[in-house]
């Protein structure tokens, strides 16, 4: 080593380009140089305009009584989402996860993840019963592998995600295959006992 790297000496690393060079090369360079004049500073600044709000506390949206909430909240917030209310078994798990555990508890989140899987499985079964079955071809958009250069986008390109992308079809098709295997076994058993 001919020179001691700067980290081991008191000196700053020399800049590669001066501010003048950068200003000439890069459009807009330094337009927001003033650190005190960036939209996020000072971080906590009381806004005089209250951004269009003409209330101190918003009027309450009706229907909050039965809605789940984080127990870290004092109440159901005055405005809330009403998409996909809780239903069925997954709904019961969710209700328990919210009622019992705060956001600080891993149990809260793991139960919610479990409820998601329970609901997805139920939804697949119901979609068959309701004659609007989930279509693993159209719903995964997998045909775009053919129309959007699936192979050439992936291979010979130093991508590091090809080592796990093969797992995706297994994750998606796994439950279908498992259901088929279980079904076939049950059928075979039923035949034998006939």
């Amino acid at each position: 080593m001919d020179r001691t790297p700067h980290a081991y000496t008191p000196h700053d690393v020399a800049r590669r380009e001066t501010s003048e060079q950068l200003r000439a090369r890069i459009p807009g360079w330094g337009a927001d140089l003033d650190r005190a004049d960036r939209p996020q500073f000072p971080e906590l600044s009381l806004r005089e305009d209250l951004t269009g709000a003409r209330w101190e506390f918003p009027e309450r949206q009706p229907g909050g009584e039965s809605r789940e909430r984080s127990i870290e909240h004092a109440f159901v917030t005055p405005v809330f989402g009403t998409a996909q209310p809780r239903r069925g078994l997954s709904g019961a798990i969710r209700k328990h996860a919210y009622a019992k555990y705060s956001e600080a508890r891993a149990a809260h989140w793991l139960m919610l993840i479990a409820a998601d899987r329970v609901e997805a499985t139920g939804a697949h079964l119901m979609s068959i019963v309701r004659l609007h079955p989930d279509n693993p071809i159209t719903e995964t958009g997998i045909t775009s592998e053919l129309t959007r250069s699936g192979l050439s986008s992936r291979f010979g390109r130093k991508r590091s995600d090809t080592n796990h992308q093969w797992m995706d079809p297994v994750l998606v098709a796994g439950p279908f295959v498992a259901a088929a295997v279980v079904g076939a076994k049950a059928l075979a058993r039923a035949r034998r006992t006939d």
Partner: peptide, 24 residues
């Protein structure tokens, strides 16, 4: 919401009046 403790200080992404499911 524009008016909670957070919104009043410009922290709009941290609004406390709109997400009943979580405070974080």
């Amino acid at each position: 919401c524009g008016s909670c403790w957070y919104c009043a200080r410009g922290l709009y992404s941290n609004c406390h009046n709109v997400n009943a499911n979580a405070t974080a």
